[in-house]
Design a protein around this nucleic acid. Structure first.
Lengths: 245, 245
DNA sequence: GTAGTCCGGTTGTCCGGACATACGAATTGA
DNA sequence: TCAATTCGTATGTCCGGACAACCGGACTAC
Protein backbone atom coordinates (compact mmCIF):
# COMPACT_ATOMS: atom_id res chain seq x y z
CA UNK A 1 0.00 0.00 0.00
CA UNK A 2 1.08 3.54 -0.42
CA UNK A 3 0.49 6.69 1.49
CA UNK A 4 -2.20 9.03 0.28
CA UNK A 5 -0.50 12.24 -0.71
CA UNK A 6 -1.81 15.13 -2.70
CA UNK A 7 -1.07 18.79 -3.17
CA UNK A 8 -3.32 21.69 -3.99
CA UNK A 9 -1.78 24.02 -6.48
CA UNK A 10 -4.47 26.61 -5.91
CA UNK A 11 -3.52 27.03 -2.28
CA UNK A 12 -1.20 29.83 -1.27
CA UNK A 13 0.58 27.36 0.98
CA UNK A 14 3.89 26.38 -0.66
CA UNK A 15 3.86 22.96 -2.25
CA UNK A 16 6.88 21.72 -0.34
CA UNK A 17 5.22 22.77 2.88
CA UNK A 18 1.99 20.97 2.07
CA UNK A 19 3.98 17.84 1.39
CA UNK A 20 6.13 18.05 4.49
CA UNK A 21 3.08 18.59 6.67
CA UNK A 22 1.35 15.56 5.22
CA UNK A 23 4.42 13.44 5.75
CA UNK A 24 4.84 14.71 9.28
CA UNK A 25 1.27 13.99 10.19
CA UNK A 26 1.55 10.53 8.66
CA UNK A 27 4.56 9.83 10.81
CA UNK A 28 2.87 11.25 13.88
CA UNK A 29 -0.24 9.17 13.30
CA UNK A 30 1.80 6.04 12.81
CA UNK A 31 0.83 5.55 9.17
CA UNK A 32 4.51 5.74 8.35
CA UNK A 33 6.11 3.45 10.86
CA UNK A 34 9.72 3.79 12.00
CA UNK A 35 12.18 2.23 9.61
CA UNK A 36 9.89 2.57 6.59
CA UNK A 37 11.64 3.51 3.37
CA UNK A 38 10.01 6.56 1.85
CA UNK A 39 10.54 5.45 -1.74
CA UNK A 40 12.82 7.26 -4.07
CA UNK A 41 12.48 10.97 -4.62
CA UNK A 42 12.15 10.80 -8.37
CA UNK A 43 9.20 8.48 -8.32
CA UNK A 44 7.58 10.39 -5.47
CA UNK A 45 7.91 13.59 -7.43
CA UNK A 46 6.36 11.98 -10.50
CA UNK A 47 3.49 10.58 -8.48
CA UNK A 48 2.64 14.00 -7.10
CA UNK A 49 3.30 15.93 -10.24
CA UNK A 50 6.08 17.87 -8.55
CA UNK A 51 9.68 18.43 -9.39
CA UNK A 52 12.43 16.71 -7.50
CA UNK A 53 13.82 19.87 -5.88
CA UNK A 54 10.40 20.57 -4.38
CA UNK A 55 10.14 17.07 -2.98
CA UNK A 56 13.66 17.32 -1.66
CA UNK A 57 12.88 20.58 0.09
CA UNK A 58 9.95 18.94 1.85
CA UNK A 59 12.02 15.95 2.89
CA UNK A 60 14.92 18.12 3.99
CA UNK A 61 12.75 20.07 6.39
CA UNK A 62 11.75 16.82 8.09
CA UNK A 63 15.35 15.66 8.19
CA UNK A 64 16.18 18.92 9.97
CA UNK A 65 13.45 18.20 12.47
CA UNK A 66 14.96 14.79 13.08
CA UNK A 67 12.00 12.80 11.79
CA UNK A 68 13.73 11.34 8.76
CA UNK A 69 17.21 10.07 7.95
CA UNK A 70 18.67 10.02 4.48
CA UNK A 71 21.26 7.51 3.35
CA UNK A 72 22.88 7.88 0.03
CA UNK A 73 22.47 4.79 -2.08
CA UNK A 74 19.82 3.43 0.24
CA UNK A 75 16.94 5.81 0.60
CA UNK A 76 15.12 7.95 3.10
CA UNK A 77 13.62 6.29 6.11
CA UNK A 78 11.54 7.24 9.08
CA UNK A 79 13.69 7.58 12.13
CA UNK A 80 13.28 4.89 14.70
CA UNK A 81 13.15 6.73 17.96
CA UNK A 82 10.59 8.65 19.90
CA UNK A 83 11.55 12.10 18.76
CA UNK A 84 9.03 14.44 20.26
CA UNK A 85 10.01 18.00 19.57
CA UNK A 86 13.46 19.41 19.42
CA UNK A 87 14.09 22.22 21.82
CA UNK A 88 12.79 25.60 20.84
CA UNK A 89 12.52 28.92 22.50
CA UNK A 90 9.36 28.36 24.45
CA UNK A 91 7.11 30.20 26.80
CA UNK A 92 6.49 28.69 30.20
CA UNK A 93 2.86 29.73 29.96
CA UNK A 94 2.39 28.06 26.58
CA UNK A 95 4.20 24.94 27.71
CA UNK A 96 1.99 24.58 30.74
CA UNK A 97 -1.15 25.26 28.77
CA UNK A 98 -0.17 22.70 26.15
CA UNK A 99 0.35 20.18 28.94
CA UNK A 100 -3.15 20.87 30.20
CA UNK A 101 -1.90 22.37 33.43
CA UNK A 102 -4.12 25.46 33.52
CA UNK A 103 -1.47 28.02 34.43
CA UNK A 104 -2.44 31.04 36.51
CA UNK A 105 -0.40 34.16 37.07
CA UNK A 106 -0.30 36.70 39.85
CA UNK A 107 1.48 39.95 39.13
CA UNK A 108 3.49 41.10 42.13
CA UNK A 109 5.28 44.07 40.61
CA UNK A 110 4.69 46.00 37.38
CA UNK A 111 6.54 49.30 37.36
CA UNK A 112 9.23 51.32 35.67
CA UNK A 113 12.56 51.58 37.46
CA UNK A 114 16.08 52.82 36.86
CA UNK A 115 18.31 50.01 35.61
CA UNK A 116 20.90 48.23 37.68
CA UNK A 117 24.29 47.64 36.16
CA UNK A 118 23.59 43.95 35.65
CA UNK A 119 20.32 44.52 33.83
CA UNK A 120 21.79 47.32 31.71
CA UNK A 121 24.56 44.99 30.59
CA UNK A 122 22.18 42.16 29.82
CA UNK A 123 19.77 44.30 27.81
CA UNK A 124 22.44 46.46 26.27
CA UNK A 125 20.81 49.76 27.29
CA UNK A 126 22.38 52.88 28.70
CA UNK A 127 23.22 52.91 32.40
CA UNK A 128 20.96 55.86 33.12
CA UNK A 129 17.86 54.63 31.30
CA UNK A 130 14.68 53.24 32.76
CA UNK A 131 13.22 49.78 32.22
CA UNK A 132 10.04 47.93 32.93
CA UNK A 133 10.29 45.68 35.90
CA UNK A 134 7.97 42.77 36.23
CA UNK A 135 7.57 40.23 38.97
CA UNK A 136 5.12 37.39 38.71
CA UNK A 137 4.17 34.19 40.47
CA UNK A 138 3.05 31.31 38.28
CA UNK A 139 0.62 28.75 39.70
CA UNK A 140 -0.64 25.39 38.58
CA UNK A 141 -3.52 23.72 40.34
CA UNK A 142 -3.56 26.54 42.85
CA UNK A 143 0.02 25.83 43.96
CA UNK A 144 2.91 28.22 43.31
CA UNK A 145 5.35 26.75 40.83
CA UNK A 146 7.71 29.50 39.78
CA UNK A 147 8.75 33.05 40.49
CA UNK A 148 9.43 35.11 37.39
CA UNK A 149 11.34 38.38 37.43
CA UNK A 150 11.66 40.17 34.10
CA UNK A 151 13.07 43.41 32.73
CA UNK A 152 12.08 44.96 29.42
CA UNK A 153 13.59 47.93 27.59
CA UNK A 154 11.49 51.09 27.75
CA UNK A 155 8.85 51.91 25.17
CA UNK A 156 8.75 48.42 23.77
CA UNK A 157 5.44 47.27 25.05
CA UNK A 158 2.44 48.36 27.09
CA UNK A 159 2.34 46.08 30.07
CA UNK A 160 -1.20 45.76 31.32
CA UNK A 161 -1.47 43.85 34.58
CA UNK A 162 -4.80 42.37 33.56
CA UNK A 163 -3.38 40.96 30.32
CA UNK A 164 -0.32 39.67 32.10
CA UNK A 165 -2.51 37.66 34.44
CA UNK A 166 -4.53 36.25 31.55
CA UNK A 167 -1.72 35.12 29.30
CA UNK A 168 2.07 34.87 28.94
CA UNK A 169 4.63 37.55 28.29
CA UNK A 170 5.85 36.10 25.00
CA UNK A 171 2.36 36.06 23.61
CA UNK A 172 1.97 39.73 24.42
CA UNK A 173 5.26 40.49 22.74
CA UNK A 174 4.35 38.60 19.61
CA UNK A 175 1.00 40.36 19.54
CA UNK A 176 2.90 43.66 19.64
CA UNK A 177 4.68 42.73 16.43
CA UNK A 178 7.96 41.65 17.99
CA UNK A 179 9.45 38.62 16.27
CA UNK A 180 11.55 36.64 18.67
CA UNK A 181 14.74 35.27 17.20
CA UNK A 182 17.05 33.77 19.78
CA UNK A 183 17.82 33.59 23.45
CA UNK A 184 20.80 32.91 25.63
CA UNK A 185 19.97 31.02 28.78
CA UNK A 186 21.58 29.55 31.83
CA UNK A 187 20.13 26.87 34.05
CA UNK A 188 21.44 26.28 37.54
CA UNK A 189 20.44 25.54 41.08
CA UNK A 190 20.84 27.12 44.49
CA UNK A 191 19.33 27.23 47.96
CA UNK A 192 16.22 29.26 48.63
CA UNK A 193 16.53 32.41 50.70
CA UNK A 194 13.90 33.08 53.35
CA UNK A 195 11.85 35.40 51.12
CA UNK A 196 12.07 33.08 48.15
CA UNK A 197 10.99 30.14 50.26
CA UNK A 198 8.08 32.13 51.63
CA UNK A 199 6.88 33.08 48.16
CA UNK A 200 7.02 29.57 46.77
CA UNK A 201 5.82 27.68 49.81
CA UNK A 202 9.13 25.97 50.39
CA UNK A 203 11.45 25.91 53.35
CA UNK A 204 14.48 28.14 53.69
CA UNK A 205 17.50 26.38 52.20
CA UNK A 206 15.43 24.12 49.97
CA UNK A 207 16.94 23.53 46.50
CA UNK A 208 15.61 25.73 43.72
CA UNK A 209 16.02 25.41 39.97
CA UNK A 210 17.07 28.71 38.41
CA UNK A 211 16.98 30.01 34.87
CA UNK A 212 18.31 33.26 33.44
CA UNK A 213 17.46 34.28 29.94
CA UNK A 214 18.12 37.15 27.56
CA UNK A 215 15.87 37.14 24.50
CA UNK A 216 16.65 38.90 21.22
CA UNK A 217 14.40 39.84 18.33
CA UNK A 218 15.39 39.49 14.71
CA UNK A 219 17.14 42.83 14.62
CA UNK A 220 19.45 41.69 17.40
CA UNK A 221 17.93 43.96 20.00
CA UNK A 222 17.56 42.47 23.48
CA UNK A 223 13.87 42.55 24.26
CA UNK A 224 13.73 40.79 27.60
CA UNK A 225 15.92 39.73 30.49
CA UNK A 226 14.50 37.31 33.01
CA UNK A 227 15.54 35.58 36.20
CA UNK A 228 13.28 32.70 37.09
CA UNK A 229 13.24 30.29 40.01
CA UNK A 230 11.31 27.04 39.97
CA UNK A 231 10.28 24.56 42.62
CA UNK A 232 12.15 21.45 41.52
CA UNK A 233 9.44 19.18 42.95
CA UNK A 234 6.97 20.73 40.50
CA UNK A 235 9.04 21.59 37.48
CA UNK A 236 12.01 20.42 35.48
CA UNK A 237 13.32 21.24 32.03
CA UNK A 238 12.71 18.51 29.54
CA UNK A 239 13.73 18.60 25.90
CA UNK A 240 14.99 16.79 22.87
CA UNK A 241 18.35 17.54 21.29
CA UNK A 242 19.49 16.86 17.77
CA UNK A 243 23.04 16.40 16.61
CA UNK A 244 24.10 19.12 14.23
CA UNK A 245 25.85 17.64 11.24
CA UNK B 1 34.88 47.35 -0.29
CA UNK B 2 33.72 43.84 -0.83
CA UNK B 3 34.47 40.59 0.85
CA UNK B 4 37.00 38.34 -0.75
CA UNK B 5 35.22 35.20 -1.76
CA UNK B 6 36.30 32.40 -4.02
CA UNK B 7 35.53 28.80 -4.63
CA UNK B 8 37.68 25.95 -5.81
CA UNK B 9 35.88 23.77 -8.29
CA UNK B 10 38.58 21.14 -8.12
CA UNK B 11 38.01 20.52 -4.48
CA UNK B 12 35.81 17.64 -3.39
CA UNK B 13 34.23 19.99 -0.87
CA UNK B 14 30.79 21.05 -2.13
CA UNK B 15 30.70 24.56 -3.50
CA UNK B 16 27.84 25.70 -1.26
CA UNK B 17 29.81 24.47 1.74
CA UNK B 18 32.96 26.32 0.72
CA UNK B 19 30.92 29.48 0.42
CA UNK B 20 29.06 29.07 3.69
CA UNK B 21 32.30 28.43 5.54
CA UNK B 22 33.91 31.53 4.11
CA UNK B 23 30.92 33.61 5.06
CA UNK B 24 30.79 32.13 8.54
CA UNK B 25 34.45 32.78 9.16
CA UNK B 26 34.05 36.34 7.86
CA UNK B 27 31.25 36.91 10.33
CA UNK B 28 33.19 35.33 13.13
CA UNK B 29 36.26 37.43 12.40
CA UNK B 30 34.18 40.58 12.26
CA UNK B 31 34.83 41.30 8.60
CA UNK B 32 31.09 41.15 8.11
CA UNK B 33 29.72 43.28 10.90
CA UNK B 34 26.23 42.88 12.32
CA UNK B 35 23.56 44.58 10.24
CA UNK B 36 25.58 44.43 7.03
CA UNK B 37 23.55 43.68 3.95
CA UNK B 38 24.98 40.71 2.11
CA UNK B 39 24.14 42.02 -1.33
CA UNK B 40 21.65 40.33 -3.58
CA UNK B 41 21.92 36.66 -4.35
CA UNK B 42 21.91 37.04 -8.10
CA UNK B 43 24.84 39.36 -8.19
CA UNK B 44 26.71 37.30 -5.61
CA UNK B 45 26.18 34.21 -7.73
CA UNK B 46 27.44 36.01 -10.82
CA UNK B 47 30.47 37.30 -9.00
CA UNK B 48 31.47 33.81 -7.89
CA UNK B 49 30.50 32.06 -11.08
CA UNK B 50 27.90 30.01 -9.26
CA UNK B 51 24.22 29.52 -9.79
CA UNK B 52 21.67 31.12 -7.51
CA UNK B 53 20.44 27.83 -5.98
CA UNK B 54 23.98 27.08 -4.88
CA UNK B 55 24.39 30.48 -3.30
CA UNK B 56 21.00 30.16 -1.65
CA UNK B 57 21.95 26.79 -0.20
CA UNK B 58 25.02 28.33 1.40
CA UNK B 59 23.05 31.26 2.80
CA UNK B 60 20.26 29.02 4.04
CA UNK B 61 22.66 26.95 6.09
CA UNK B 62 23.81 30.09 7.88
CA UNK B 63 20.24 31.24 8.39
CA UNK B 64 19.57 27.88 10.04
CA UNK B 65 22.51 28.47 12.30
CA UNK B 66 21.08 31.85 13.25
CA UNK B 67 23.91 33.91 11.80
CA UNK B 68 21.91 35.53 9.02
CA UNK B 69 18.38 36.84 8.61
CA UNK B 70 16.60 37.08 5.28
CA UNK B 71 13.95 39.68 4.57
CA UNK B 72 12.01 39.49 1.40
CA UNK B 73 12.26 42.70 -0.53
CA UNK B 74 15.12 43.90 1.62
CA UNK B 75 17.99 41.50 1.53
CA UNK B 76 20.03 39.22 3.72
CA UNK B 77 21.81 40.72 6.67
CA UNK B 78 24.15 39.60 9.39
CA UNK B 79 22.28 39.11 12.62
CA UNK B 80 22.93 41.64 15.26
CA UNK B 81 23.32 39.67 18.43
CA UNK B 82 25.98 37.66 20.13
CA UNK B 83 24.94 34.28 18.83
CA UNK B 84 27.49 31.86 20.08
CA UNK B 85 26.44 28.37 19.27
CA UNK B 86 22.95 26.98 19.29
CA UNK B 87 22.50 24.11 21.65
CA UNK B 88 23.72 20.81 20.41
CA UNK B 89 24.11 17.40 21.86
CA UNK B 90 27.36 17.88 23.63
CA UNK B 91 29.79 15.97 25.74
CA UNK B 92 30.63 17.33 29.15
CA UNK B 93 34.23 16.32 28.61
CA UNK B 94 34.48 18.15 25.29
CA UNK B 95 32.75 21.22 26.68
CA UNK B 96 35.16 21.45 29.56
CA UNK B 97 38.16 20.86 27.35
CA UNK B 98 37.02 23.54 24.93
CA UNK B 99 36.69 25.94 27.86
CA UNK B 100 40.26 25.17 28.85
CA UNK B 101 39.21 23.56 32.10
CA UNK B 102 41.44 20.47 31.90
CA UNK B 103 38.87 17.85 32.85
CA UNK B 104 39.97 14.75 34.74
CA UNK B 105 37.98 11.61 35.31
CA UNK B 106 38.03 8.95 37.97
CA UNK B 107 36.22 5.71 37.22
CA UNK B 108 34.42 4.42 40.30
CA UNK B 109 32.50 1.53 38.77
CA UNK B 110 32.89 -0.26 35.44
CA UNK B 111 31.03 -3.55 35.38
CA UNK B 112 28.24 -5.52 33.79
CA UNK B 113 25.04 -5.87 35.79
CA UNK B 114 21.46 -7.10 35.35
CA UNK B 115 19.16 -4.25 34.38
CA UNK B 116 16.73 -2.57 36.69
CA UNK B 117 13.23 -1.92 35.43
CA UNK B 118 13.91 1.80 35.03
CA UNK B 119 17.07 1.32 32.99
CA UNK B 120 15.47 -1.38 30.85
CA UNK B 121 12.62 0.99 30.01
CA UNK B 122 14.96 3.86 29.22
CA UNK B 123 17.24 1.81 26.97
CA UNK B 124 14.47 -0.29 25.50
CA UNK B 125 16.17 -3.61 26.27
CA UNK B 126 14.68 -6.84 27.62
CA UNK B 127 14.05 -7.03 31.35
CA UNK B 128 16.38 -9.99 31.81
CA UNK B 129 19.35 -8.67 29.85
CA UNK B 130 22.59 -7.31 31.17
CA UNK B 131 24.02 -3.84 30.68
CA UNK B 132 27.27 -2.01 31.25
CA UNK B 133 27.17 0.12 34.34
CA UNK B 134 29.55 3.00 34.64
CA UNK B 135 30.12 5.42 37.46
CA UNK B 136 32.56 8.28 37.15
CA UNK B 137 33.63 11.41 38.97
CA UNK B 138 34.57 14.38 36.84
CA UNK B 139 37.10 16.88 38.20
CA UNK B 140 38.28 20.30 37.18
CA UNK B 141 41.28 21.91 38.83
CA UNK B 142 41.45 18.97 41.20
CA UNK B 143 37.98 19.61 42.59
CA UNK B 144 35.05 17.24 42.01
CA UNK B 145 32.45 18.82 39.76
CA UNK B 146 30.03 16.12 38.74
CA UNK B 147 29.04 12.54 39.37
CA UNK B 148 28.16 10.61 36.22
CA UNK B 149 26.26 7.34 36.25
CA UNK B 150 25.73 5.68 32.88
CA UNK B 151 24.21 2.52 31.46
CA UNK B 152 24.99 1.11 28.03
CA UNK B 153 23.37 -1.77 26.16
CA UNK B 154 25.47 -4.95 26.04
CA UNK B 155 27.92 -5.63 23.25
CA UNK B 156 27.94 -2.07 22.02
CA UNK B 157 31.35 -1.01 23.13
CA UNK B 158 34.45 -2.16 24.93
CA UNK B 159 34.76 0.01 27.98
CA UNK B 160 38.36 0.26 29.02
CA UNK B 161 38.87 2.04 32.32
CA UNK B 162 42.10 3.57 31.14
CA UNK B 163 40.50 5.09 28.08
CA UNK B 164 37.55 6.34 30.11
CA UNK B 165 39.90 8.23 32.39
CA UNK B 166 41.73 9.78 29.45
CA UNK B 167 38.76 10.98 27.42
CA UNK B 168 34.97 11.22 27.34
CA UNK B 169 32.35 8.57 26.72
CA UNK B 170 30.92 10.16 23.58
CA UNK B 171 34.32 10.28 21.98
CA UNK B 172 34.76 6.58 22.59
CA UNK B 173 31.36 5.87 21.10
CA UNK B 174 32.09 7.91 18.00
CA UNK B 175 35.41 6.17 17.63
CA UNK B 176 33.56 2.86 17.71
CA UNK B 177 31.55 3.91 14.67
CA UNK B 178 28.38 4.90 16.49
CA UNK B 179 26.76 8.00 15.01
CA UNK B 180 24.82 9.87 17.62
CA UNK B 181 21.55 11.28 16.41
CA UNK B 182 19.40 12.69 19.21
CA UNK B 183 18.88 12.70 22.94
CA UNK B 184 16.06 13.27 25.34
CA UNK B 185 17.08 15.01 28.51
CA UNK B 186 15.68 16.37 31.73
CA UNK B 187 17.28 18.95 33.96
CA UNK B 188 16.18 19.41 37.54
CA UNK B 189 17.41 19.98 41.05
CA UNK B 190 17.24 18.23 44.40
CA UNK B 191 18.96 17.95 47.77
CA UNK B 192 22.11 15.90 48.14
CA UNK B 193 21.92 12.66 50.06
CA UNK B 194 24.70 11.87 52.50
CA UNK B 195 26.62 9.68 50.04
CA UNK B 196 26.21 12.14 47.19
CA UNK B 197 27.41 14.99 49.38
CA UNK B 198 30.42 12.93 50.44
CA UNK B 199 31.38 12.14 46.86
CA UNK B 200 31.17 15.71 45.66
CA UNK B 201 32.55 17.44 48.71
CA UNK B 202 29.28 19.12 49.60
CA UNK B 203 27.16 19.02 52.71
CA UNK B 204 24.16 16.78 53.11
CA UNK B 205 21.06 18.60 51.91
CA UNK B 206 22.97 20.97 49.66
CA UNK B 207 21.25 21.73 46.34
CA UNK B 208 22.40 19.65 43.38
CA UNK B 209 21.76 20.17 39.68
CA UNK B 210 20.60 16.93 38.03
CA UNK B 211 20.47 15.79 34.44
CA UNK B 212 19.05 12.62 32.95
CA UNK B 213 19.67 11.74 29.37
CA UNK B 214 18.86 8.97 26.90
CA UNK B 215 20.89 9.12 23.71
CA UNK B 216 19.90 7.52 20.40
CA UNK B 217 21.96 6.69 17.34
CA UNK B 218 20.74 7.20 13.81
CA UNK B 219 18.97 3.85 13.68
CA UNK B 220 16.87 4.88 16.64
CA UNK B 221 18.57 2.50 19.04
CA UNK B 222 19.12 3.83 22.56
CA UNK B 223 22.87 3.72 23.09
CA UNK B 224 23.22 5.34 26.49
CA UNK B 225 21.24 6.26 29.56
CA UNK B 226 22.82 8.57 32.10
CA UNK B 227 22.00 10.15 35.41
CA UNK B 228 24.30 13.00 36.28
CA UNK B 229 24.53 15.27 39.30
CA UNK B 230 26.46 18.54 39.28
CA UNK B 231 27.64 20.92 41.95
CA UNK B 232 25.71 24.09 41.17
CA UNK B 233 28.49 26.26 42.48
CA UNK B 234 30.80 24.82 39.83
CA UNK B 235 28.55 24.08 36.90
CA UNK B 236 25.46 25.34 35.16
CA UNK B 237 23.94 24.67 31.76
CA UNK B 238 24.38 27.52 29.36
CA UNK B 239 23.14 27.60 25.81
CA UNK B 240 21.68 29.52 22.94
CA UNK B 241 18.23 28.83 21.58
CA UNK B 242 16.86 29.65 18.15
CA UNK B 243 13.24 30.15 17.26
CA UNK B 244 12.03 27.54 14.83
CA UNK B 245 10.13 29.19 12.04
C1' DG C 1 35.36 -20.37 -0.31
C1' DT C 2 36.88 -15.91 -0.49
C1' DA C 3 38.08 -11.68 -2.35
C1' DG C 4 37.67 -8.42 -5.78
C1' DT C 5 34.85 -6.25 -9.39
C1' DC C 6 30.84 -4.64 -11.63
C1' DC C 7 26.35 -2.61 -11.74
C1' DG C 8 21.74 -0.92 -10.59
C1' DG C 9 19.62 2.20 -7.63
C1' DT C 10 19.46 6.24 -4.63
C1' DT C 11 20.75 10.47 -2.75
C1' DG C 12 24.15 14.63 -3.27
C1' DT C 13 25.38 18.48 -5.91
C1' DC C 14 24.77 21.92 -9.40
C1' DC C 15 22.86 24.46 -13.24
C1' DG C 16 19.84 28.15 -15.61
C1' DG C 17 15.65 29.85 -15.87
C1' DA C 18 10.78 31.53 -14.67
C1' DC C 19 7.20 33.72 -12.08
C1' DA C 20 5.18 35.12 -7.45
C1' DT C 21 5.32 37.93 -3.39
C1' DA C 22 6.62 41.21 -0.11
C1' DC C 23 9.08 45.32 1.43
C1' DG C 24 10.50 50.19 1.07
C1' DA C 25 10.89 54.39 -1.09
C1' DA C 26 9.48 57.62 -4.42
C1' DT C 27 5.59 59.47 -6.54
C1' DT C 28 1.07 61.02 -6.86
C1' DG C 29 -3.22 62.55 -5.16
C1' DA C 30 -6.45 64.65 -1.76
C1' DT D 1 0.64 68.25 4.90
C1' DC D 2 -0.55 63.64 4.81
C1' DA D 3 -2.36 59.44 2.83
C1' DA D 4 -2.76 56.25 -1.06
C1' DT D 5 -0.56 54.34 -5.12
C1' DT D 6 3.07 52.85 -7.94
C1' DC D 7 7.34 50.73 -8.84
C1' DG D 8 11.99 48.86 -8.29
C1' DT D 9 14.29 45.28 -5.97
C1' DA D 10 15.08 41.54 -3.24
C1' DT D 11 13.86 37.04 -1.65
C1' DG D 12 10.38 32.92 -2.08
C1' DT D 13 8.86 29.21 -4.80
C1' DC D 14 9.16 25.96 -8.53
C1' DC D 15 10.71 23.67 -12.67
C1' DG D 16 13.47 20.15 -15.57
C1' DG D 17 17.61 18.41 -16.27
C1' DA D 18 22.53 16.65 -15.64
C1' DC D 19 26.32 14.28 -13.55
C1' DA D 20 28.82 12.58 -9.31
C1' DA D 21 29.26 9.76 -5.18
C1' DC D 22 27.96 6.09 -2.55
C1' DC D 23 25.67 1.68 -0.96
C1' DG D 24 24.51 -2.97 -1.50
C1' DG D 25 24.07 -7.10 -3.81
C1' DA D 26 25.37 -10.12 -7.61
C1' DC D 27 28.74 -11.84 -10.25
C1' DT D 28 33.28 -13.36 -11.37
C1' DA D 29 37.95 -14.84 -10.77
C1' DC D 30 41.37 -16.81 -8.02
Amino acid sequence: MQLELSVDRGSPVPLYFQLSQQLESAIERGVLTPGTLLGNEIELAARLGLSRPTVRQAIQSLVDKGLLVRRRGVGTQVVHSQVKRPLELSSLYDDLEAAGQRPATKVLVNTVVAVSAEVAAALGVAEDSEVHRLERLRFTHGEPMAHLCNYLPPGLLDLDTGQLEATGLYRLMRAAGITLHSARQTIGARSATATEAERLGEQTGAPLLTMQRVTFDDTGRAVEFGTHTYRPSRYSFEFQLLVRS
